[in-house]
Every structure is written in C-alpha cells, then in structure tokens.
Simulated scan of single mutants.
Amino acid sequence: MRREITGFSNPLVKQVRSLREKKHRKREGLFLAEGLRIMTEAREAGFLPEMLFRCADRDAHSLEIVLEGEVLTAGGDVIETSADILSKLSGKDNAQTVIGVYHEHPTALSDIDRNAAPIWLVAQAMRDPGNLGTMLRTGDAVGAGGLILIDDCT
C-alpha cells in the first residue's frame, strides 16, 4: 500500500524510530537499512523491506522505482515523507533518501554449506560499522563464501 506521512507524531514514525535501539529491534524482529545501494543489493539477494520510506520532496531514481514496485507487489508498504522525518527515523545528520524496515533472517551455523566456498570470514562482537564494511569488501575481494557474525555485532 502506498501512503504519505507528514507528521512527526505519527505512531509509525515513533515505532520505526525505536528500531534504532537494539532492545526494540530484538523485540520486533525488525531492523533498518538505509540507502538505495544496500536496499538494491538486498532486493537482488531476494530480500525486500516490509516498509519502504522514501523522500517525497524529490524524483525517484530508476532503481528506487523498481524497488518500490516489488515492495508493493509483495504486499509491503511504500511511505512517502519529508527529508526531516527521514532524518528523524535515521538518527543521522545526513539521512539517506530511502530507508527500509526489514524482518530479521537469521541463519544458523548448521545451515551454512561450508564447502560452498574455500574461505569464510568470522567476526565476533564487532562494534564498528566501518570495520564490518571493510570485512565485507575484503571477503568479496578474496571470494569468501560470506561473513559469519557471532554474538552481538553492529
């Protein structure tokens, strides 16, 4: 369903904003992803957001139009809102123009085919998102099968 949110006091804005905190993410089984690039990569891997928030104050990028169509087809919500509300949802000074709310899809270690790739990266209790990005890029460069995160990670 497509809709518009114009007020900061909207209950959905409050609920999504709460996902910035770990306790709310764990309770809801949801998390936020910000930015068209990461959301396009998630879509290509078969993961669509339950809710897609987009900036109504600008024209949509062609990849965003594709993402919106697939979210709507899958029964998700596309919510148009202002850059100020997106910034409030994000908590960042320079918020992205699209934010997605995704269901967690945990994978048990026993579900991973360790023979699918010669190299696997493992990180335990990683706190810095920049380090996570570095590990992902490194894994991609060496042909790793994936990055396994153990314990609470960023």
Rank of each mutant, 00 (worst) to 15 (best):
M1G: 02
R2Q: 09
I5Y: 01
T6N: 11
G7A: 11
F8H: 07
F8C: 06
S9C: 13
P11V: 00
P11W: 08
R17F: 06
K22S: 13
K23T: 11
H24E: 08
H24I: 00
R25C: 03
K26T: 01
E28H: 00
G29R: 02
G29W: 03
L30I: 04
L32M: 07
A33T: 11
A33M: 05
L36R: 06
R37F: 05
I38E: 15
T40P: 07
F47Y: 09
M51K: 10
L52W: 07
F53D: 04
C55T: 05
D57W: 12
D59W: 13
H61N: 12
S62F: 13
L63A: 10
E64G: 07
E64M: 04
I65G: 09
V66T: 08
E68F: 10
L72G: 03
T73I: 03
V78W: 06
V78M: 07
V78I: 04
E80R: 05
S82N: 13
D84C: 07
D84T: 12
S87A: 14
S87T: 13
S87R: 08
K88E: 07
D93W: 14
N94S: 11
A95V: 02
T97R: 11
T97D: 13
V98Y: 02
G100Q: 01
V101N: 01
V101Y: 04
Y102I: 09
T107S: 00
L109R: 11
L109H: 05
D113S: 05
I119H: 09
L121T: 01
M126G: 04
M126A: 05
R127P: 01
P129H: 06
N131S: 12
L132C: 15
L136P: 10
R137D: 08
G139D: 09
D140H: 10
D140L: 14
A144R: 11
G145P: 03
I148R: 08
I148L: 13
I148P: 02
L149W: 09
I150D: 12
T154H: 12
